[in-house]
Design a binder for these strands. Structure first.
Lengths: 218, 218
DNA sequence: ATTTTTCGAGCGAGCGCTCGCTTTATAGAC
DNA sequence: GTCTATAAAGCGAGCGCTCGCTCGAAAAAT
């Protein structure tokens, strides 16, 4: 969490008015934690900054030393999510054959959303009904993920590992399944499905649908 | 739209204070139209009743003759959606073999969400961050859909049409693909994917993943 | 003439955000 | 170590404004 706060501080150094980095990082971490908890409970829009003040233990004035508007607070979170996704999944290992590269991507996405669950649920749920910039950022990040899937499918068609008629459509169908892991997290928790079990099921489902010649070992 | 308004009137006859049915139906239809348009643009919570007053052409006071609170307005929409889903898809034709019954369900769901797109996007996007009753209603409706899929898969396993290891998991993966049609409607519109094309792609994808012995004709 | 429907100014509450002030941390002089 | 000057960080009442909602009166329908 503090590592993520440090990233935010680096990216928004101009709007954060607190000068000592270690203080700013610690407080930002607490602000993010409180914001995610509150916003995922009642929605970002319904979360008042007085609520956030109470939850985080900082005064109204102190909060505004870390962001200059509620929208900036929103962009801090969305920016962090898309940045982390790009870093963790943006360059699939080209040396792996497509089926294993697909598993790498799916497993990585599941692991990442598991580790940063409140961040991803926030980005998915809140971004829709908010200002242009915020929504564009969320849409771009989703398209990026879909593009990563499509690229692997196209490669797999070329190598003969997959037999996919419409690469874009297949990627468009795989992505919502992948997202379901964090969008409907409580459903899988209730059914006691582990991250590994979900990844295996999704991978098996996708491989069969993609006309893969043989299944890939876990 | 007026047919849907008539249903709402029947279900909320106690809160609607306007007595003449034809007046109430017409106004309710306009209120629903305006609400869906506004809420899908800026979010239900951000939509003020003054906005709704302007958009619908009714005064603040007139609006409150049709619902007693903003939350009731929300429940009117969510209730209509789950009611319509249950009526249209609640009883799959038992005489069809499982693969064709699956196609019936998927095609029906796509057609229904296509015909009532703003209603479904509203239910999906807004319900999350709202009062208990509203959220429970949305969750129950989604579980119902997933249950309908699972029942068909189980039947297909019994007849030998499908070879599905985990029926619940397979249904859990198919549903988000199905929902993607209306949740990400603009994506498919941009790519010029028709409802029929989407249904075919989804059906083909699912059948392959379910280990079906042969494909089903459209 | 009476009921039915619509109207919109107005209410109190709560919103995002500001700003004059207090408290806390830091650093040089002795 | 102690004192003190200065900067850094935090505070919270209060601003202007919009919100959901009400209600007495006007308008329309019967």
């Amino acid at each position: 969490m503090e590592a993520l706060a440090a990233r935010i501080l680096a990216r928004h150094s101009e709007t954060v008015r607190v000068k000592k980095a270690h203080v700013a990082t610690m407080r930002l971490a607490r602000i993010m934690e409180s914001t995610l908890a509150l916003a995922n409970r009642v929605g970002f829009h319904s979360m008042s900054l007085r609520d956030l003040s109470t939850e985080s233990g900082l005064s109204m004035g102190a909060l505004y030393a870390y962001f200059d508007s509620k929208e900036t607070l929103l962009l801090m979170i969305l920016g962090t999510v898309s940045e982390v996704v790009e870093e963790a999944l943006g360059e699939p290992p080209a040396d792996l054959p497509p089926p294993e590269r697909l598993r790498w991507l799916l497993a990585g996405h599941v692991a990442l959303t598991e580790a940063m669950l409140p961040w991803f649920t926030f980005a998915y749920m809140q971004a829709k009904s908010f200002p242009r910039e915020a929504r564009d950022m969320a849409v771009a990040s989703e398209q990026r993920t879909e593009g990563l899937i499509a690229a692997i499918l196209a490669d797999g068609n070329a190598t003969g590992d997959f037999r996919v008629a419409d690469v874009e459509m297949a990627a468009a169908l795989i992505k919502p399944m992948l997202q379901d892991w964090y969008v409907k997290r409580s459903k899988y928790r209730r059914r006691k499905v582990s991250a590994a079990a979900f990844t295996d099921a999704l991978m098996g489902f996708a491989m069969a649908a993609l006309g893969a010649r043989a299944s890939v070992p876990a």
